[in-house]
Computed example of a mutant assay.
Amino acid sequence: MSHDASIITRTPKLGRAVRIGLALAVIATIAGVSVRAYDYHHVVAWTHAQVTPSVQLVTPESGHGLQAMTLPGHLDAWISAPIHARVSGYLKSWSRDIGSQVAAGQSLAEIDTPELDQQFEQAKASLVRAQANARLAVLTDKRWKNLLASNSVSKQEADEKAGEAEAAQANVLGAQADVDRIAALEAFKHITAPFAGTVTARSTDIGDLISANNESSPALFTVSDTTRMRLYVEVPQGYADAIRPDMSVQLDVPDHPGEQFTGHLIGNSGAVNQASGSLLAQFEVDNPRGELLPGAYAEVHLPMAANNHTLTVPATTLIFRAQGPQVAVVDAHNKVVLRNVHIAMDLGDRLRIDKGLQAGDRVINHPSDSLAQGDAVQIALADDDAGKAE
């Protein structure tokens, strides 16, 4: 009886241990499944985040006040005269070189013209001969008129002598004109400055053969007045209305970094060049210190009134595809919406859009080429926001 009783008393203890072991096994199994489920969802979320592209957003800015558009321009001297020879010969000497300041009428060079000198002497001799013939013809005319009064000669003969006297006087006038013409050419032996300015080119030297009748011959000198400059700007047709009377522009030149000059509108061509599609505008720029050089390149800042109906976005937001210019906008569900836009003005690093965007739109900056309509995206934090999140 005692042996059976001991067996009966140990059986409940063994059953309790089994139940506890089973419970622990079930708890361990549930915990393992939960951990695996958590890891699975974490991996799925991480994979989804890696697949969904991250984008940076910008907000369009409204136009206000005056804005400037930068256009290329070039500078020319206010007056620039290439000086050619009017007489043929050899260059005898020159007295002014490039960079020299000259006054109006100041001599630049002298041409040796032996042939012209001989023609001048011949013309003066012809004048003397014509004057002598004229004096003789006048005396003869007087004598024949006296003879006619006494009926010693006929009226016909007297009229002939009178005509010869008039012809001799005309020959004197012709000879005098020829002398004056050659004397004027003799004056062209001295090449002079037509106005006060700077010698910007000298294309001859002592001993050079000078030909006055060769149209292809280069200019001997070039004199330019650079106290004022002419600034020429090609304005695209779409912005031609920005050219207004009495307007002023600011310009920069590469050889004077950080310094700006002011130009005042003189006028415009009044017509659009069909080849370039632009309107030529001309400005006057004061240059009292000679800092601006003829032929120089300039960046011209053309003021333009802002349009309240336009929005400004960075040029890096633009997408070029077969549909034309587009931008990618993110909607409230973080889905991509492609918008067709119209560029009212290209400012280089910025674009002014007058169709296709609204104030407050979230525009993707630097969109990828593979971005498509309806793609899900995630918004990348800006640098300052990322710092706060950390």
Rank of each mutant, 00 (worst) to 15 (best):
307 N>I: 03
372 A>L: 11
286 D>W: 01
272 V>Q: 03
348 G>I: 06
343 I>W: 03
318 L>I: 15
302 L>S: 04
321 R>P: 01
317 T>Q: 01
295 G>K: 08
372 A>M: 09
313 V>I: 15
346 D>H: 09
363 V>T: 04
272 V>E: 03
359 A>T: 12
299 E>P: 00
311 L>G: 09
275 A>C: 00
333 H>T: 13
286 D>M: 10
356 G>E: 08
321 R>S: 15
338 L>I: 14
333 H>N: 15
319 I>Q: 12
373 Q>F: 02
350 R>N: 12
288 P>H: 08
374 G>L: 04
367 P>W: 07
289 R>N: 14
332 A>Q: 15
292 L>E: 04
365 N>I: 12
354 D>G: 06
302 L>F: 05
354 D>C: 08
317 T>E: 02
335 K>E: 13
296 A>C: 04
350 R>L: 13
282 Q>Y: 01
271 A>T: 15
344 A>T: 02
373 Q>G: 00
335 K>D: 02
354 D>S: 11
347 L>A: 13
281 A>D: 10
346 D>K: 01
280 L>E: 11
318 L>C: 10
323 Q>Y: 04
311 L>H: 11
316 T>N: 11
284 E>V: 08
328 A>Q: 13
333 H>K: 15
376 A>L: 14
277 G>W: 09
301 H>T: 06
366 H>L: 10
318 L>V: 11
351 L>W: 04
315 A>D: 10
314 P>Y: 06
299 E>F: 13
312 T>R: 15
334 N>Y: 08
364 I>G: 03
373 Q>C: 01
343 I>R: 02
284 E>Y: 02
316 T>W: 00
303 P>F: 05
364 I>E: 04
332 A>P: 01
366 H>R: 10
295 G>C: 07
270 G>N: 08
370 S>F: 04
283 F>L: 09
373 Q>H: 05
361 D>A: 03
364 I>T: 00
292 L>Y: 03
281 A>C: 06
278 S>A: 15
348 G>W: 04
276 S>N: 13
333 H>P: 00
309 H>P: 00
298 A>T: 11
338 L>K: 08
326 Q>A: 07
347 L>W: 02
323 Q>R: 14
345 M>F: 01
336 V>N: 01
296 A>G: 06
309 H>A: 15
294 P>Q: 07
301 H>G: 01
375 D>F: 11
366 H>V: 02
298 A>C: 10
274 Q>T: 10
318 L>W: 08
290 G>L: 10
346 D>A: 05
333 H>L: 14
327 V>M: 14
367 P>I: 03
318 L>P: 09
289 R>F: 07
337 V>G: 00
312 T>S: 12
291 E>K: 13
342 H>C: 00
341 V>R: 02
308 N>L: 13
300 V>F: 07
348 G>K: 06
323 Q>S: 15
339 R>Y: 03
305 A>G: 09
274 Q>P: 09
337 V>T: 12
